[in-house]
């Protein structure tokens, strides 16, 4: 028997044991190509989507690679600033990681102007004919608002002004939202204050 023949037959034994052709007794196990057998078994497990089928442990090799990695110079003073201003206040991230890249206006301001309806101003009497900005709600998914796509010939000064107005409207909506949070308790306070003099009467 040549060597090539020998390995081929060992491979064949491994394959046949897995297929259930050969009983997995001591004799066949002795003839097994262990490495191939393990690999075949893994392939089979993965194909059958058995849980934990594929379990390749690379932590050791990664750790070894890290060991041999050259050490970059670390300045001694550059320690990470630990946020500890003595406050025990819990952060938002306790529940949810804030997506800091996202502008606050996007999350709180409800609306952004996309274009202003330039219909002629009603002379005052015709109140039903309200000039209305076309609005698009900014709920969740944020996309930059551009006026240029609507009116390419817009002058840059005009555009700046619109952005200013849009910014202002965003600020107003946010402020309204914030202020209305205190509205209810303020109202109860004023009610209480109103009731007291009445009781005195």
């Amino acid at each position: 028997m040549t060597k090539a023949n020998h390995t081929a037959s060992r491979q064949e034994v491994a394959s046949r044991v897995l297929d259930g052709d050969l009983p997995s007794n001591e004799l066949s196990v002795a003839q097994l190509d262990t490495e191939k057998f393990v690999r075949y078994a893994q392939i089979g497990d993965v194909m059958r989507e058995r849980q934990g089928g594929l379990n390749i442990d690379i932590t050791a090799s990664v750790a070894a690679a890290l060991e041999s990695e050259p050490c970059h110079s670390v300045p001694v003073g550059a320690q990470v600033d630990v946020q500890d201003n003595g406050t025990k206040v819990i952060k938002l991230s306790a529940w949810q990681k804030p997506l800091s890249q996202m502008a606050i206006a996007a999350s709180v301001a409800l609306v952004a102007i996309v274009g202003v309806n330039t219909m002629p101003q009603p002379s005052g009497e015709d109140t039903d004919n309200l000039p209305v900005f076309q609005s698009t709600p900014l709920a969740g998914g944020v996309s930059p608002v551009s006026f240029s796509s609507e009116q390419p010939a817009l002058e840059s000064a005009e555009k700046g002004l619109r952005e200013l107005q849009q910014q202002r409207i965003g600020a107003l909506v946010l402020e309204h939202q914030r202020q209305s949070r205190v509205a209810y308790s303020l109202q109860k306070q004023t009610q209480r204050a109103d009731e007291q003099p009445e009781e005195k009467k």
Binding site: F133, S135, H176, A183
Partner: peptide, 23 residues
């Protein structure tokens, strides 16, 4: 219902009055 009223310095330029609504 809560209503907020803001009185501010006007923005430069002649801006038309208008309404904007969302919901």
């Amino acid at each position: 219902v809560d209503i907020s009223v803001f009185v501010q310095r006007p923005l430069p330029g002649q801006r038309a009055s208008g309404a904007l609504s969302s919901g």
